[in-house]
Design a protein around this nucleic acid. Structure first.
Lengths: 248, 248
DNA sequence: CGTATGGTTGAGTCCGTTCAAACTGAGTGG
DNA sequence: CCACTCAGTTTGAACGGACTCAACCATACG
């Protein structure tokens, strides 16, 4: 699969004040923090960069850390004993990561592309939450949001056809992934990068790789999308795709 | 389907101090409230009782209220335009209900059995959250819990077979539904009431009613469960069922 | 180049669906 | 008390969408 070597270097981390130059700060709970509060957070944070396919943690591991994705794409997933896998989410810059039930992670996390993350000590961040209720509020709003998204995904997994699933997936990516880079809508905003493998897409949508591939070609033949290469697509008829996603 | 006429009357509501006698208080955020805080909450709460199949609210409705289920079973679900339905959860006494994205419900809710609920004004409860951080913390912990459950359900919907789905479902009910009434484990704790219709079970598991029915009989013929009537079952071999639920 | 990995395409199969009919049990009214 | 209805459930037979198995193709890499 086409990797994205530039991504890992796209956001050089300035050592002295990591968070000041943070381009995705306004997407996270950091956006509600004052200057002093940011300083306290920064004392507990570590910026990490990982190559693609790095496992960040596994389901069942002690949940020592929480993360914010700052660059790249991360997937979270659960496994059945025989290896069947369900990807429960793709995470993009600004997304929060590390939900734990009591003290252990309830899912595994792996970098899809080269990725950068802010790593927090779980206990320290939770302690800071007690002192900064507005931050806690932001996090809990995020969790509610994720729960709503999870329910949408349940509808998709339980009741949509392969074609509807793929259409929904492409639209989700279009919403979440700013087209290619952070350039303004110069080029048509319908260009879409598919950083994850067909296998990942299948495990996210409850399909096999073959069905994913066939459905892509089917949409291509219908003239709804254009496949540039396996990692890039263009949405030719967004309205049609939106209709398909809801089964119309 | 067999309704449960006794349920609606099972918890007589004493007008003067509704919450004092609340049997499920320790299951909700009320458990962390002091006496004075309870009094403030009580001023905003209304106890409602509804017959089976009452719609509490619909997806898209203005989210004016939040609810705690105090008796009975409630289902929450989402619909596709053509009527396909995904039930995203069954709620039991103690469960919290009413997640809203901005100001509108993101799912519909309907009583499965006769049910009783505490109804809160959303704005008032959110205001009280600001003053009672421990209550807010409890609610947000609940939301995290629900998110973890939602991810389990995604694994089920995306990757499990019909048999594994039904096995998982029965075990979920066994965990959530105290066998029959609130009597201590006098009778064997493997008795299970199935208050929802086959259609509800199907829409919860991403199956048709026929497949649900067939899978039940299949499990019966295997000797894993016993079907008393369409609304009651007995788990004969829990270990086997647990193995089946995970695909072993 | 040859090899490897991931993606596409084809053929055949199967699990769950669809369509259809029979059954069950609760409620109703003669 | 029984006949009748009706909604929900069960069972049967046939179908089909997605899966499995397998071959082929494209791009990356040593």
């Amino acid at each position: 699969m086409a990797t994205h070597p530039k991504l890992a270097l796209a956001r050089p981390i300035a050592k002295p004040s990591v968070c000041d130059g943070c381009e995705i700060r306004n997407l996270t709970f950091c956006s509600v923090l004052s200057r002093e509060e940011m300083a306290r957070i920064q004392a507990t944070v570590k910026n990490i960069e990982v190559p693609a396919h790095t496992t960040l943690f596994r389901e069942g591991d002690p949940a020592d850390h929480l993360f914010n994705v700052t660059a790249g794409v991360v997937k979270i997933y659960k496994l059945l004993p025989d290896g069947r896998r369900q990807i429960t989410g793709f995470l993009f810059p600004g997304d929060f990561l590390g939900l734990a039930y009591d003290a252990n992670y309830v899912y595994s996390a792996e970098a899809v592309t080269p990725a950068a993350l802010c790593r927090f000590s779980r206990t320290k961040l939770l302690a800071l939450c007690d002192e900064m209720p507005h931050m806690e509020k932001h996090i809990s709003a995020t969790t509610s949001h994720e729960l709503a998204a999870a329910q949408d995904q349940m509808l998709l997994l339980g009741r949509k056809t392969a074609q509807e699933k793929i259409a929904s997936f492409l639209l989700m990516l279009l919403r979440r992934l700013r087209p290619h880079a952070e350039q303004p809508p110069k080029e048509d905003a319908s260009l879409l990068s598919l950083p994850m493998s067909r296998s990942d897409i299948g495990d996210y949508l409850g399909l096999t790789i073959e069905t994913v591939s066939r459905t892509f070609t089917h949409l291509r033949k219908k003239g709804v999308i254009k496949l540039l290469d396996s990692g890039h697509a263009e949405i030719l008829d967004r309205g049609r795709l939106e209709a398909m996603a809801e089964g119309a």
